[in-house]
Design a protein around this nucleic acid. Structure first.
Lengths: 200, 200, 200, 200
DNA sequence: GATGAATGAGTGTTCATTCAT
DNA sequence: GATGAATGAACACTCATTCAT
């Protein structure tokens, strides 16, 4: 019954199951035993692949961070036309994909871990700095094109990230189901305001 | 050793210690045993007061939520003068006090719990709805006074909360230590823009 | 809310609740805490009345033993007529009342305790010896009257008790619901056979 | 210290120790910790083999039930000669072996458990139904041979079981040590009477 | 008479981990 | 590559009991 598989197949499978449990039960409920039971394998086999729960967590965080990185990469514009670049940026930032990429519950668990685990902290920091670098670059281009107000692009990026991350993580607490859709277009307009374009 | 105290003294002391550990070690590390050891008492004494870890958590969350509630309450303006009200609102929203009221690490742990614990979820939801109600009211008053653009105040409140909560919770990831101070005045200006006043 | 009562009222109430739990959850589940919770009083109050779980158990056993004692007492014939005495004896031994007097589950728990608790053992022994003395006396009278075979009345009593106790305690395992009623008349005939009367 | 064994050796060893404690301390005193201490191993090792106290109990009950099953099996006659079959049956039913197979204290504990544990209940029921099926079959053969009175063999089996089980379980309460031996021949005669043979 | 504070041992169970096979 | 044996610490929780009020 127990098929013999190699690390390349098993490891991602373990990571996937671990992340599922992380989402369902939080970090306080995510144990090696549960992952093993869910996969129908022996706990020691997980130790065999990851040697420590710590490294399992790190690799799981890496997986999440990687997904976000891919997304940021995909936001990169394929055109030099400033107007289209602005539209594309806005569409991506408030778009479905970005908000769906990972379960928010996992985000909270991971960030929760980051306070005590320097390795996890480093990874999140690196992700956000990547994000910020991309955004500032994009804003600078738009400023150069005169499409948005010329100001310190890094600061503007931080403002944007505040609003976007705040919305992504807390919306389910204060945005009613009903208004979620129209809220998105509000958000677009708000971004434009923050960046300073002519009018609404 | 067997010092005798009563519930009014012991319970908050236990809660305080529990929250300290929650911040230091996260929900996955916050155990009754550790709280007891830290206090130099027996774990069963904690059960005596809270009967369940669940209720200990709930009461701890209540404690946090209460603090935020007090803060929201203190934001309430003592004046009818619209201009002063606006200034006061801005000062509070980006002020130190609001950002210091509780350790952000505790916030993440608590929200992390809220995904699986309906009681905790209810409490956070109640808090945010209180927050939103207060903000919309305040915005409506400012709209009536013609100080900010007249728009659906609830939606505007949600936008504001997105940005503020995003900043509060994620700033340490993307705002450099150096810029934190000046970022605050940026934030104020951003708020004014979102709400639509004459110019910068 | 908590009324002040005196020992004469409280003690039997505690015993009653303890026995209920003993039946429902067995000796392994019958704790002072549960009794207290069920009664809405503090566990220490039970200690106040019984000072030890041991004495609580003993008094509970006493209560059960007492009930059986009353029953045996009630079997005593009010007539000197030997034929009526025999009929009455048979009717009682297989009668409903005797089989209903106490929950069999409690019997098993109590006997289970008796193996390790000499006090409980003494009480059960005393009860059975009372039972045996009564039965032998009755049989001797019937022998003297020539209604049943003349043999060592004590031995005959033991035989009878074997069969009756066996039926009482194990019938639910091997007697089908359907046959339980007719089994009773079978049992009566069986007793007569054991005691040696003319025919069936 | 860390002697390595396998399940085939350890599991029965654990079961044996558990049953010993069950007899000595009753179900209320039979804990995994005590079994572990007695064996000089860690409690978690017992969990490793049985994963739950419940399954440990079930397997222990299975062990007891199995022993009885073997005994019933051994009662099966090797001859077709009715007279020898009857003698053999009588000898077995009142014989030492049957009464020694398991500590009566364990019986009471197990039956005590059966009231709340459906799995245990099922097992005891199955055992008794096996026992009854065997006895009725045997009685029918003897009836066919004209050695005992022709009556509903199932009912007669139930009567027999009542008496035998009653004797087995309660004899130590009402049968004096002195009389135990002669009681056995009394019991044989009583059985014959119940089954209806010519005379005593 | 009754409650609450406090203890300390003990409950079954989960956990990550090590090691031999 | 995979399993199973074994550990030891930790977990939340229950228990009977003591003592002060």
């Amino acid at each position: 019954m127990r098929q013999r598989q190699n690390a390349e197949l098993r490891k991602p499978e373990i990571l996937r199951n671990f992340l599922e449990i992380l989402v369902e039960e939080g970090i306080e409920g995510a144990s090696i035993g549960k992952v093993a039971k869910r996969m129908g394998i022996h706990p020691s086999l997980i130790m065999h692949y990851f040697s420590t729960k710590e490294t399992l967590i790190i690799e799981a965080v890496d997986h999440i961070v990687h997904e976000y990185g891919v997304l940021i990469d995909r936001m990169k514009p394929r055109t030099a036309d400033p107007a289209r670049r602005l539209r594309r940026l806005l569409d991506t930032l408030v778009g479905d994909e970005w908000h769906r990429v990972s379960e928010i519950a996992a985000d909270f668990s991971v960030i929760s871990i980051s306070f005590r685990n320097p390795e996890v902290d480093r990874r999140i920091r690196r992700l956000y700095s990547l994000y910020k670098r991309f955004l500032s670059g994009e804003l600078r281009a738009l400023m150069d094109a005169g499409l948005i107000e010329r100001r310190d692009p890094a600061r503007r990026a931080e403002l944007l990230m505040s609003m976007l991350e705040g919305y992504r993580h807390f919306k389910h607490f204060f945005v009613s189901e009903r208004s979620a859709k129209s809220f998105r277009s509000d958000m677009k307009r708000a971004i434009l305001r923050l960046l300073g374009t002519g009018g609404d």
